[in-house]
Nucleic acid binder design. Structure first.
Lengths: 188, 188
DNA sequence: GCATTATAAGTGAACGCTCACTCACAACAA
DNA sequence: TTGTTGTGAGTGAGCGTTCACTTATAATGC
């Protein structure tokens, strides 16, 4: 039998690019097939539907990223080290695969309500990191939801700025600055 | 002649709600007409196309918001006062008309490339406020693009958190906290 | 080695359906 | 009457999806 893994990979790559640049609804299966150099029908050998392609692309990668963040938490003992490593990971992810990062963290808000398990959610991982730091007295106590989103804003918005050409790449060069900003905001 | 202004207002209101909750592409003209209590054809008495409705809704309101922010800059002499008033304005806007705020600042990224005049762009207004403060020595000098986006992240991401139910409304109650966070980040 | 068989991968014209948009007409106000 | 607003069945382009068919390759028996 023939090996379709290369085709699948090409579909992934082109789908991400088009979904991010044009939007999911604005990308037709015809567009996608043409960009990937395959026939329309071929896409349905690999995915049940356009929608399942979108969902698979989102959920699997979202889960993996959340698990990477979780692994970082376990690897570092205290809050400043965890924060620094987490932010570096965000920056590295953006620089390595900007389309995937944008798809997961900046554009696919519609998919978020379908994510069920909290452990597979990057936002949840960050909030848990903050709650843990508050319990240990490493940062000042206040609304964890607010603190998590302040922190998240300091990471995600620079990524947006980079997308719009308001900030020079790579994002990683600002990792240390962003980390310091987070620590100041959380009054460490 | 008959007065269509009430109809136009109803279209605005329902369109915003559906565009934000479902997405622009996922909202059909039929949906819209039904929600607004009018026939499909009536929508075309007021707008050339669905697309022109989206663009009109975005550009006119985007412009007005940018001008309100500009007015605030002129009203306050120094950076801390400007920042505080600007952030309060963001929060008030979100609390007053969450659908419009979300449409302009959180979901309609696709429309941004079409905005031409810099003066009618909220992001640009904030960046200019920062550049001005750097020149006066009110805050530490560094990349204005990065600084503007760090600040913006501290305002927009809490709004996102509120949308997802991770933060309790109203947003205005956090205005002071967010302002303080901005000042810390900018090392005032 | 060399046929034979099995099966997954790839194809693209065709299909049913939904969509944004149109238009002939009605209702209303000036 | 005259111009504006409202109507909703009608239209055709474009969408996601299907399916009968072809092609490539792995597995099997000789």
């Amino acid at each position: 039998m023939r090996d379709g893994r290369a085709t699948r990979q090409k579909i992934h790559q082109e789908a991400l690019k088009q979904f991010v640049e044009k939007g999911v609804a604005e990308t037709t299966v015809r567009d996608l097939a043409h960009a990937a150099g395959i026939a329309e029908g071929t896409l349905y050998r690999h995915y049940e539907s356009k929608d399942s392609l979108v969902w698979d692309l989102f959920s699997s990668n979202y889960k993996v990223f959340a698990q990477q963040l979780t692994a970082i938490q376990k690897r570092h003992p205290n809050f400043p080290a965890r924060l620094s490593a987490t932010i570096s990971e965000f920056c590295r992810f953006f620089d390595d695969d900007p389309m995937l990062f944008r798809f997961l963290m900046l554009t696919q808000h519609q998919a978020l309500p379908r994510v069920e398990n909290d452990d597979d959610n990057p936002v949840e991982v960050i909030q848990k990191m903050i709650v843990s730091a508050m319990k240990r007295g490493e940062i000042a106590k206040r609304s964890p939801g607010l603190a998590a989103n302040l922190l998240l804003g300091l990471v995600l918005q620079p990524a947006v700025g980079l997308v719009y050409g308001r900030i020079k790449p790579p994002l990683s060069q600002y990792a240390e600055t962003i980390t310091q900003a987070c620590l100041r905001v959380l009054k460490v």
